[in-house]
């Protein structure tokens, strides 16, 4: 079966700095990722990792510098703006800030109806009926369509955001940190809702988040991004049980314990993420990695497949692992 989404070598650079000291911010560098129909892929990274840039490029809310993005085999990058508007019915997005993502002066029902009649799927009248249906799907009261965003709670606002994304029955929904602005108890409601929707409508999700725990709860596969590059991608279980890349290990180990009695082996990454402006050759984690060796700072590092579906961008891991296991001594 062909993939819903196919990203090949997606690169997005932003020029930064003044007219003379031109620098390039590498928001995304050679990102390749595919999503099968009905699959959920988690995209994890810290701020500045480029995960949101990837999400926005997929919907062409930003123009990629280079690379190809295929939605059901059709190029998003090359689509004309009128074709793109039609294609958008098939790829939707849920945004991080539920309040900011809803227009404060338009009733939420109208916002949800918009993609339906704009894409020409149905008339405005039919769209209104469909709105009632999707609001029911996301468990919102029947009078919600007539309300404005500020009359709803944060959780309800995000349900509207999800309803809007689902209205056109898209094959792909990009979820950009959909729960990180919400309270813990509400976050769980939204995660459960997303799972429920997946079982009923089986859209493919790209779940973008900084929180590995949240991502792992929904995802079949996880891709970890660091400073614009995917450093590891693999099935969720593999990522948690046998993480290869030191950055993935650092992320997992940095998550707080679940119980005060729990003893957790910790791998501390030094310092903080550096900036993705004019990155040096070699591994981008080199300055923070406890296992760094001189060879890590040389040449381009490819993302290498270890087992089918599990790829790691780490020279030492690729060379030294035995059946996926690699327990090096810290080099500093």
């Amino acid at each position: 079966m062909s993939n819903v989404l196919e990203i090949r070598g997606l690169t997005k650079h932003y020029p930064v700095g003044g007219a003379f000291a031109r620098s390039l911010l590498h928001a995304a560098d050679d990102v390749s990722l595919s999503i099968a129909p009905g699959e959920t892929v988690g995209l994890v990274g810290e701020s500045g990792s480029g995960k949101s840039t990837v999400g926005r490029c997929i919907l062409r809310l930003e123009e990629p510098t280079s690379g190809e993005i295929l939605l059901n085999g059709e190029s998003v990058v090359a689509a004309t703006s009128s074709r793109l508007r039609v294609m958008r019915a098939n790829m939707q997005m849920v945004f991080q800030d539920p309040y900011d993502s809803l227009n404060p002066r338009i009733k939420v029902g109208e916002l949800v109806a918009e993609p339906l009649w704009l894409s020409g799927i149905m008339s405005r009248k039919e769209a209104d009926r469909k709105v009632a249906e999707v609001f029911d799907l996301v468990h919102l009261p029947t009078d919600t369509p007539l309300r404005y965003a500020h009359q709803l709670s944060g959780g309800q606002q995000q349900r509207v955001g999800i309803a809007r994304a689902l209205a056109t029955n898209p094959d792909l929904v990009v979820l950009d940190e959909p729960t990180s602005a919400l309270d813990v108890s509400v976050q769980a409601q939204i995660i459960n809702l997303l799972e429920e929707i997946r079982q009923r409508l089986s859209p493919a999700y790209l779940f973008i988040s900084h929180d590995l725990s949240v991502v792992s709860n929904l995802s079949d596969r996880v891709a970890v991004m660091y400073l614009g590059q995917i450093v590891e991608v693999g099935p969720t279980d593999t990522i948690f049980e046998l993480p290869g890349h030191p950055y993935t290990r650092g992320l997992i180990s940095a998550a707080p314990v679940e119980h005060p009695a729990q003893q957790k082996e910790r791998l501390t990454l030094l310092g903080e993420p550096t900036s993705p402006v004019d990155p040096k050759p070699g591994c981008r984690l080199a300055s923070r990695c406890p296992f760094v060796e001189p060879k890590c700072r040389e040449g381009e590092l490819p993302l290498q497949e270890i087992t089918p579906g599990h790829s790691v961008r780490c020279r030492r891991y690729v060379e030294e692992h035995v059946d996926g296991v690699w327990d090096p001594e810290p080099t500093r």
């Binding site: 108890s185 509400v186 769980a188 409601q189 799972e195 725990s213 949240v214 792992s216 969720t236």
Partner: peptide, 23 residues
């Protein structure tokens, strides 16, 4: 209890216990 149960566990799937309603 609701707060404790509504936390997603790393690497674990399945339905989360959530607290209905809002603050």
């Amino acid at each position: 209890r609701g707060l404790l149960q509504s936390r997603p566990k790393p690497g674990a799937r399945g339905e989360l216990q959530s607290i209905p309603g809002r603050v």
